[in-house]
């Protein structure tokens, strides 16, 4: 049974990008089983919880990285160290690293980077060496570059306007660098995920987003039609296998 201790204390809440904050939280972390799982945060003043991926776990601290896009994330951004949050932890399936092939590549864009960071760390801890490629619109939107560099694994950045790293999409980097991945993991904006699934002939896993009612499987507000029937993004997802997805 899940613990109903849902109280987390903010240890830090700082800007790490033009529109992005990193929040360090202290609280129960035992229930997390896989990278790519998410938390659902009750934001004071808002009815529905806000789903945010876990970026890192160290002991009883948890890191999330979030873009400020609307009222909920704005309120989060204004919160201070010492304040408490009510958070449902360890939601969703997360990435399965048992089928990562010989040469996995990890692809992320924007706030798809945080869960990919936790995946990379998890793989390294399990003696798997992934290649990471991050994509951004421009250098002004880049986040987490240093953290990824510190992982000491093959690492590339692509920007659409060429202001940093290679000019183009993450998939372009695979070609120009002559990489030969046999499995991919991806998280980022939907058009990026669609392009990745369309352009890469290798199998892989993709993490999706949806507006959620509950985040834990009770309401069916997040259902996705897959090749293996209807699935809930919050419960059977957010990570799906490429061949489950039906692109419209």
């Amino acid at each position: 049974m899940r613990s109903n201790d849902t109280t987390y204390t903010i240890l830090d809440n700082s800007w790490i990008g033009a529109n992005t904050k990193l929040m360090l939280l202290e609280g129960p972390t035992e229930e997390f089983t896989r990278p790519g799982q998410f938390v659902n945060i009750a934001v004071p003043g808002f009815t529905l919880r806000r789903p945010i991926s876990v970026c890192d776990i160290e002991g009883d601290t948890l890191t999330i990285v979030y873009d400020v896009v609307g009222g909920g994330t704005e309120t989060l951004a204004n919160m201070k160290a010492g304040q408490k949050l009510d958070i449902l932890a360890a939601l969703g399936n997360g990435f399965d690293i048992s089928r990562c092939g010989e040469q996995p590549v990890l692809l992320a864009g924007g706030v798809g980077c945080p869960p990919i960071y936790s995946l990379a760390k998890h793989m390294i801890a399990n003696d798997i060496l992934p290649t990471v490629i991050l994509g951004f619109n421009s250098d002004k939107r880049m986040i987490m570059i240093e953290q990824f560099e510190n992982l000491d694994i093959p690492f590339y950045v692509a920007t659409l306007d060429g202001s940093y790293g290679e000019k183009g999409y993450v998939t372009d980097v695979i070609r120009t660098e002559g990489l030969n991945p046999d499995y991919f993991y991806a998280c980022g904006p939907l058009p990026m995920l669609k392009a990745i699934c369309g352009q890469l002939s290798i199998p892989g896993q993709v993490s999706l987003e949806a507006r959620m009612g509950c985040g834990f499987g009770a309401c069916m507000c997040c259902s996705l039609e897959t090749t293996r029937g209807a699935k809930r993004i919050c419960k059977e997802g957010p990570v799906f296998e490429k061949d489950e997805l039906i692109w419209k």
Partner: peptide, 23 residues
């Protein structure tokens, strides 16, 4: 029934709006 397309949920003050469509 699969139900309605996403998004199926919107937030409002002290409430929510759903259109699951009887999945």
């Amino acid at each position: 029934r699969f139900g309605n397309p996403l998004p199926r949920v919107a937030e409002c003050t002290a409430g929510m709006i759903n259109s699951v469509g009887l999945q």
